[in-house]
Write a protein that binds this DNA or RNA. Structure first.
Lengths: 150, 150
DNA sequence: CGCGAGACGTTATATTGTATCCAACCGTTC
DNA sequence: GAACGGTTGGATACAATATAACGTCTCGCG
């Protein structure tokens, strides 16, 4: 386990946390590694099952605490429409992401589209609304799956 | 209960369902009425509690089934980030809505912004992605609450 | 009326997420 | 190095959200 790509993410995460004065502990690192290794989003209990393999039993709060930390640090994202989590591609800068979720293959693509951000922002400001967090999840079929399905 | 506005929604829902050849049964009507009467989104179990008042006991599936129907017909929307439901303002035409959710007062505003729709659509089509359902929820503070908070 | 599909009641259970309390660890200070 | 204080983690229990499964009833239709 822990592909080269995952190791790279872990290294960057380590550096980020150090710079921010927070601790990327073993548990948190493990959760992040599991998420990065997975080709698709994982539920908290799937992460839990993975962590339990060959190790002693763990309880849900352990995973949720690690996830809370990683979410705060922007190292992972939560997909509310799936009740699942994914590692973040580019945690270096804070960002509000958008997700394309394929309901055929389960793949999730994180995009960061200026135009969406801008239109959301201006739609909100019309009503005097001050956005804090944005949830943008588009469910559909990815390019690959919509070709197959035809 | 059942304000004039709610009654109007119920009437329109009745007409819509009749036109579509589906049945707006008593349970479904009741759930829709409860949602329309509420100034803020309600969880399934809050709806359940309301329905139980002064009546015989009901079980969760009853509410979830009614909600599934109403969602299919576009008469209510689900706010995934709140695990809650709201009545729809304009069920006449199918639409993908966006929501502004105030985390101070709990109020939710449904907006229907062309620009957001367009930018989402074009961002998806760049990757060859075919959207089916869109989840757009902006959490923040509404105009009223951000004034008070200052 | 009698039939069939859809709707509903009921029980049980799955899934996701938290509260709480205490023990272990870690870095700091003396 | 020992005492201390804050963060982290373990463990138990539980809350909140949602669904499976199955039998019964009802409604609209022929």
């Amino acid at each position: 386990m822990d592909s080269p790509a995952t190791l790279a993410v872990l290294d960057r995460a380590e550096i980020l946390c150090r710079a921010r004065g927070v601790r990327l502990t073993a548990q948190r690192r493990r959760v992040l590694a599991i998420l990065c290794d997975s080709p698709r989003p994982l539920g908290a209990y799937e992460i839990l099952d993975t962590m339990r393999e060959g190790s002693r039993p763990l309880a849900p709060p352990t995973v949720y605490r690690a996830l809370d930390f990683l979410l705060e640090q922007g190292l992972v994202h939560k997909l509310v429409s799936l009740h699942a989590f994914v590692g973040c591609n580019h945690p270096e800068h804070p960002h509000s992401s958008q997700f394309l979720i394929c309901n055929a293959c389960g793949e999730v693509t994180e995009i960061e589209d200026e135009a969406i951000d801008r239109s959301l922002g201006s739609a909100a400001s019309v009503s005097g609304f001050r956005p804090q967090r944005r949830v943008v999840e588009v469910i559909g079929t990815c390019a690959g799956c919509s070709q197959k399905g035809r």
